[in-house]
């Protein structure tokens, strides 16, 4: 377990997340892609904190902030899904041609 292997793992998670966020038609699956990207980001932040930050507390704080961002992303995402579903009876990105309602 070295900084390099940890960053490689984070890169793999971010790569899979990018694929998911770009390829999925369903809103909820798209959000899962975003969450996987943030998973990699958090791992990288903790790895840097542990190996090259000399224990600076801001490294851990960054991870807490990312967790808060994830919660916000999820809540807003689901609210939008609910709103779109009410309007269009659909949950795939293709059905959104405009955010008119």
């Amino acid at each position: 377990m070295t900084l390099t292997t940890l960053l490689l793992l984070a890169a793999a998670l971010i790569g899979i997340g990018i694929y998911g966020a770009l390829s999925q038609q369903s809103f909820v699956m798209l959000m899962m892609g975003l969450e996987l990207i943030l998973n990699g980001v958090m791992l990288a932040a903790v790895a840097f904190w542990a190996f090259s930050g000399a224990g600076a507390p801001e490294g851990q704080l960054l991870t807490i902030i990312v967790m808060a961002v994830m919660a916000i992303e999820m809540a807003m995402g689901f609210a939008l899904v609910v709103a779109v579903f009410r309007g269009k009876q659909a949950d795939v990105t293709e059905s959104l041609t405009g955010l008119k309602h």
Binding site: I18, Y19, L22
Partner: peptide
Amino acid sequence: IAIGAGVAGFLVLGAMAL
């Protein structure tokens, strides 16, 4: 495109790590 972007993301970040 999504597969390409995912692989490219991994390669760039992985190269940075290495």
